[in-house]
C-alpha cells in the first residue's frame, strides 16, 4: 500500500467504564473508498469522530494525513470534508449562505468562497434552491447540501457518516452518483454504513466492525467469497413452522441460518437446494434464490442481523 492517508493501531475510545472502540487497526490508502460496516452502536461513528480529530482517543495511535489526531485537530480538519450523520446545517440560513459561512471557517478568502459556493450548488443539484431556507428542503436535498458543504475546502479526504440513512431509494441513488464522481476524481472516501448495499456500491475495501472490534476485513467480493456461499436460498414456512422445518433440512447446502421469519440456506446453487427441499416433502410458503451479500457475511460473523 502507498503511504496511508489514515493509519490506526490499537485505536481505543473509552467513555468511563464503556469501551466504544476497542483497539482497532486499519490503514486507508490515498484514493481508496474505505468502509466501516456494522450495526448501530458498533463504534463506527466514534471512530469517525476520532479521525476527524473532534474526539480525543483514549489509547493507541492514529495518524491522519501524517499528523497525530490528538494534537493537530485544526490542521487535520482543514484538509478533511466531513459529512456528519445529522447534517448539522443552519436551518435558519439560506442554502447558499450555509455554504458561504462554512467556507469562511476554513480561512478562505470571501471572493473565493462565494465562487466556490456557486460551483458546489451545481454539483449538489440545488441551483433552483439557492435562496431557499434550509428548513424547507427535503431530506435528500439537505444531505446533498451537507456533502457540498463538506467539499468547500477542496478536501483530500471525505468522511461520510451514514450518508444515506433515512433517504428514500431514489434520493440514495442520486447521492451515490455524486459520491462516485468524487471517487473517480481520486478523493479518498471513508464511509460508515449499516447498509450492505451501500457498502457494496461505494467501498473498495471495508472492515466489519462489531462491539468496538474489527471482525473481518477485505473487499466486498472477497468477504462474501470467504464467509458465505455464492447463492442463498430463503424459504418461509410460516413463523410457527420455520423451526420444525429447519430440523428436516439437515445436509442441504453448506450451512443454514434459522431466523424468526425465515430459514436461510447457503449453497452455491440455490435452485438445486430448493429442489432438495421439496424432495424432502417440505413445501415452503415462499422461496427466493439470491446472491450472497454482506448481510450474510455479517450474520455469519456475529450471529446477528445488521438491521435489528
Amino acid at each position: 500500500m502507498a503511504q496511508p492517508v489514515i493509519s490506526a493501531r490499537g485505536l481505543t475510545k473509552r467513555y468511563g467504564a464503556f469501551t466504544a472502540v476497542d483497539g482497532i487497526d486499519f490503514d486507508i490508502a490515498p484514493g481508496e473508498s474505505f468502509g466501516f460496516l456494522g450495526p448501530n452502536g458498533a463504534g463506527k461513528s466514534t471512530t469517525m469522530r476520532m479521525i476527524a480529530a473532534t474526539s480525543t482517543r483514549t489509547d493507541g495511535t492514529l495518524s491522519v494525513l501524517g499528523l497525530d489526531a490528538n494534537h493537530h485537530g485544526p490542521e487535520i480538519r482543514a484538509q478533511l470534508g466531513i459529512v456528519p450523520q445529522g447534517d448539522m446545517l443552519d436551518e435558519e440560513l439560506r442554502v447558499i449562505d450555509n455554504l458561504y459561512v462554512y467556507g469562511r471557517y476554513f480561512g478562505l478568502p470571501r471572493a473565493y468562497v462565494k465562487a466556490r459556493s456557486e460551483e458546489l450548488l451545481d454539483f449538489a443539484q440545488l441551483r433552483e434552491k439557492r435562496t431557499a431556507r434550509v428548513d424547507g428542503l427535503s431530506g435528500g436535498m439537505k444531505r446533498r447540501l451537507t456533502i457540498a458543504r463538506g467539499l468547500i475546502n477542496n478536501p483530500k479526504v471525505m468522511l461520510l457518516d451514514e450518508p444515506t440513512t433515512g433517504l428514500d431509494p431514489q434520493a440514495r441513488h442520486v447521492l451515490w452518483d455524486r459520491l462516485f464522481r468524487l471517487k473517480e476524481e481520486g478523493v479518498t472516501l471513508v464511509v460508515t454504513t449499516h447498509f450492505m448495499d451501500e457498502a457494496e456500491q461505494l467501498c473498495d475495501r471495508l472492515v466489519v466492525i462489531d462491539k468496538g472490534t474489527i471482525v473481518a476485513e477485505g473487499s466486498p467480493q472477497s468477504l462474501i467469497r470467504e464467509y458465505s456461499t455464492r447463492e442463498v436460498l430463503e424459504v418461509r414456512f410460516g413463523s410457527a413452522r420455520n423451526e420444525a422445518a429447519a430440523g428436516r433440512l439437515e445436509g442441504i447446502g453448506e450451512r443454514q441460518e434459522l431466523l424468526p421469519d425465515r430459514v436461510l440456506i447457503y449453497a452455491d446453487n440455490g435452485e438445486q437446494a430448493l429442489q432438495a427441499v421439496t424432495e424432502r416433502g417440505l413445501e415452503p410458503v415462499t422461496s427466493l434464490v439470491r446472491r450472497s451479500s454482506l448481510e450474510d457475511v455479517f450474520l455469519r460473523l456475529t450471529g446477528r442481523s445488521l438491521i435489528e
Binding site: P74, E75, R77, A78, Q79, D90, L93, D97, Y100, V101, R104, Y105, F106, G107, L108, Y112, R116, L120, F123, L151, N153, N154, P155, R181, L182, E185, V187
Partner: peptide
C-alpha cells in the same frame, strides 16, 4: 469538483476563527 491548488489556511483560522463566527452571527 476538487481544486487541489486551493488549500485551507489553518494558520489564518488560528488568528481569525472568532471573526468568522461573528460573520456567521451577523448573517
Amino acid at each position: 469538483v476538487i481544486d487541489h491548488t486551493v488549500v485551507a489556511d489553518h494558520q489564518k483560522v488560528r488568528r481569525w476563527g472568532w471573526a468568522h463566527v461573528v460573520e456567521h452571527m451577523v448573517l
